[in-house]
Nucleic acid binder design. Structure first.
Lengths: 203, 203, 203, 203
DNA sequence: CTTTAACCGAGACGGTACGTCGAGTCTTTCT
DNA sequence: AGAAAGACTCGACGTACCGTCTCGGTTAAAG
């Protein structure tokens, strides 16, 4: 088994926390201000008051930096206790979560870096899977859980695969957001839930 | 009204058809071989045996070149008579179209450039809308038409908005493809149609 | 015979005279102002208002740039009709030329770049031979000619090799200049000539 | 009186002899192997198995390290009893010393570091004077002494300044070596002595 | 049937960013 | 406190492409 002929991993213990934070901040700020393509590693380094080498030492690419910065951002402020509530009213519960998602997509602090990562993931399968795993998978699991609970409560047909069913809520919204194929609003997501649940409910 | 403060549009009549084709071919080949980000205008020019200026004269960006090349590719071989058939069996008709879409997504000749354009569109709203308009809107319209026909035939509830309904077929597939969030297969798209139509059908 | 697997030589005809001059000027100015080691290619490019690539396209190294700049400087103002006069008085003739050399070595416009090139040549044999051939060989030939004339006139012994004899005039001065081993003055060079000619003259 | 506004001189007593030797060895080896410009402080430290700081603590520059390493090398093996013999035959005595010098210049263990130091000295006057004082001055003094003895013995004219006269032996050889202006051989140095002494001898 | 203006291949140009190397400083841990 | 180790900021390296700009040489429409 080959450990890789790489550069001999740097010593994580000696890593400068200060620099790491500054880099996250600079990266997110720049992506927000000038967009992902015009965000450069040199720009991040300069803004963070950091040597380029410090970035190259710890990350492999601009996308890597941004992914970590983004994860850090999401993890930081106890951002989301994030569980889909279970009030018994499946429609209302999911509508609530989707409205929160709509809010996020509208927030430029989230929008710009999230798009950047998504775009990277579209073109680079490996990166895509990493980003998906880190950013989306946890949320998806919540939907699966809530839908299974609804199935047990007899609100969703037994034969339905929750992994597929949740895509009726998430994917149309995601596509409108990513590909600008249509407007995004509470009304829209509410409708989505109504249409979709109609098909999932038992007769 | 000024159409553009640009360089005085070049004379289309004198344009070299030869070069245009060579550029399309080179662009598609390069995107397929090295991927979109490593495809450069200089590379396309060199491979096409063309001066850089010839590209800059007729297109505004790498994305533009690729979009046109892609449209040309799609338009070329009488590619798709492309209308959703109306056999009276809505489920079967849509399943058929989605299976064709799955085939496309699996074809690397389509996959690489389409991803490249999609990624560009994710990050650049303007480009995104252009690509969407040129590549997706026509297809979407076909779904709208077919769904309206189904509504008139009483197979879909009257209150349903076809613009939203079609997203239940398209968006989950699109997201799995774009974001590598799951496998793509005929079985999957068939299931999609079954689940969704169940909700759209009248009670 | 291999022509070298190099980068395909650029087209000299299209070369920008403007840039070339600007680069010469910037290089000489910088060497004069901050010294050779602190003169950088980036600095030259910036000062000349030129892209780095334009330097790398036409020269292989900082030393190359400076050598050409220096040669250009020397060639420019009909700098030296440079022949050692033959008044019949060998001592006086050579003293005159050496005094001119002393003047040059005292002129900072000459001193800084000449030292830089010399230093490069000390360490890099190939460069050294190039510099020697371009800068010193022509002058050396003048000494040889003058000494041969003196031999024919019977002022220098017949057996003497002029290639070696001229080193008695040039080398001590060169060493004092290059290695700071002693002061340089007209008086010094005059003495040099007196001592040396004493040994070269016939008894 | 302040000797230096520096960092408070380190305590020489605690200095690691081991490291010092390792650094000398590494420096000389590297200069010999890859040349002076490609010899780096980091490289020396790594090769010597020494921290960079240990070098910066005790020396001020790459040139300093090399100079000391070189002096150490020269001093080490009781290298040269080094006095010019006085057999009464001035020509023979000097020819002998010069032949030894030729041998040194031909020895790559001497050649590489000596050139490096010389080159540094050409460009940096301060360094040049230091190197000259440490490496050349002692030898020069020997020539002065021997020439004075010859003057007293009546073999050299009384008016001759030995400081200048010795340059006829040393400088041409030095220049050929430093600037690659000609081949170096016993025959050459012998000729030098013959030509020069001819001029120095009394009539 | 010639002019003549535009497109064309080619590629040099001024730039920006890349990813790497080394300088010299600083900090941690061991001896 | 010196030393090994190595992360840090900084500046330069040499390269790759960008988009603009000539330079001849075709080439198709206007004279």
């Amino acid at each position: 088994m080959v450990t890789k002929p790489a550069k001999a991993a740097p010593d994580t213990a000696r890593r400068s926390e200060r620099s790491r934070r500054a880099i996250y901040d600079a990266a997110l700020a720049l992506v927000g201000e000038v967009g992902y393509p015009r965000t450069t590693i040199e720009g991040i380094a300069a803004r963070a008051g950091v040597g380029k080498q410090t970035i190259y030492r710890w990350w492999g690419s601009k996308a890597d930096v941004l992914l970590e910065a983004f994860l850090d951002l999401a993890a930081a402020p106890a951002a989301e206790p994030y569980a889909i509530p279970d009030t018994g009213d499946l429609a209302a519960d999911i509508k609530g979560v989707l409205r929160a998602t709509v809010d996020q997509m509208t927030d430029p602090r989230f929008d710009a870096p999230a798009r950047a990562l998504a775009a990277e993931g579209v073109v680079d399968a490996e990166a895509g899977r990493r980003f998906t795993a880190a950013l989306m998978e946890p949320n998806i699991q919540l939907y699966v859980d809530r839908l299974r609970a609804a199935q047990e409560a007899g609100q969703v047909r037994a034969g339905i695969d929750p992994r597929i069913a949740l895509e009726f809520f998430i994917s149309p919204l995601a596509q409108r957001w990513l590909q600008h194929t249509g407007p995004i609003s509470y009304e829209y997501t509410d409708t989505l839930v109504d249409y979709a649940l109609y098909g999932l409910a038992p007769r």
